[in-house]
């Protein structure tokens, strides 16, 4: 890995409520010799504003990239929603230099310039491609043997394939590979690529929770011991809103849902509290007991 430090761009959801993700990231990644750098000034990536005004999305994404670019930093965007917005902005400006100029006239007012010279990663490609499976395997002290964990990638992490995404849009495998690296097993399930419903929660809670509930029910029925995510939106739905989702679809759900980075931390022998495990609402303790079996 050439990277020894990287700018951490958390977006909106992680630093305002998905604290477990942030705790675990800050706890685990430095173990691989990677310094996470916080910088002054980032704002929303703009993705949630797409519904209202696509220009805002464009501006905000470009602005965030420019901020890190100014510091000479590559970016780690652990939220797929953010990561995709950054990728899309970058892609469009690359294909349309005139637009890039236009965006820059606005950025100038904030004393910034977008050039597009830095890279951005999601946790998935950072772990799988940069840090690498070998290093991860070496770091494992307590492999999670005996666990069968469902992989939830999240729509924006893999789609759409016309802009660079961290994994294959229809047959992503990196998360499974990462699960295997920490000793767990991850079977294929038909609903793997399905949506969590998070993005209509804002205006149609019932539909959103139905999506969440249906996917959880399918995973539970398949016999998985738990589900892992790399997305704060998905985690929020599957973990924090699991009870309401269960009520909405009329199912009794009791599925441990856990960030992959938390699982990795556990396998590395980290303290639960430092990984924010107490913040997960779903019955993550079940994972431990299952493991012992």
């Amino acid at each position: 890995m050439d990277l020894d430090k990287i700018g951490l761009y958390l977006g909106c959801l992680i630093p305002t409520e998905q604290y477990a993700y942030e705790l675990a990231l800050r706890e685990v990644l430095p173990e691989f010799g990677l310094e996470l750098v916080d910088i002054e000034g980032p704002a929303c990536c703009g993705a949630p504003l797409r519904h209202i005004n696509l220009s805002l999305t464009m501006y905000l994404s470009a602005r965030n990239i420019a901020l890190f670019e100014k510091e000479g930093l590559d970016i780690l965007a652990p939220c797929p929603y953010c990561h995709q917005a950054l990728s899309e902005a970058k892609d469009i400006m690359k294909k349309n230099p005139a637009l890039k100029e236009k965006v820059n006239t606005y950025l100038k007012e904030e004393g910034l310039e977008y050039r597009g010279t830095n890279e951005h990663f999601h946790l998935l490609d950072l772990l799988h491609d940069e840090i690498g499976i070998e290093k991860i395997k070496e770091s494992i002290k307590e492999p999670l043997e005996g666990l069968n964990i469902a992989a939830h990638y999240g729509c924006h992490l893999i789609r759409p394939n016309d802009i660079p995404r961290p994994d294959h849009s229809e047959d992503p495998q990196k998360l499974e590979t990462l699960l295997k690296a920490i000793g767990a097993k991850s079977e294929y399930y038909n609903e793997k690529l399905d949506c969590c419903g998070a993005h209509i929660f804002i205006n149609d809670q019932e539909s959103a929770l139905t999506k969440t509930g249906q996917k959880l029910e399918a995973v539970q029925k398949h016999g998985f011991d738990g589900m892992t995510t790399m997305c704060p939106w998905g985690q929020r739905m599957f973990d924090a809103k699991q009870d309401s989702a269960g009520q909405t679809v009329g199912a009794s759900l009791s599925l441990p849902v856990i960030y992959y980075i938390q699982l990795l931390g556990l396998a590395m022998g980290k303290e639960q509290e430092k990984l924010g495990l107490h913040l997960n609402k779903s019955p993550v303790d079940k994972l431990g007991s299952k493991e012992e079996d």
Partner: peptide
């Protein structure tokens, strides 16, 4: 139109 969950499957 306000109920699209932005799963992006249509685009994909």
């Amino acid at each position: 139109i306000w109920t699209c969950v932005t799963c992006l499957k249509c685009k994909e």
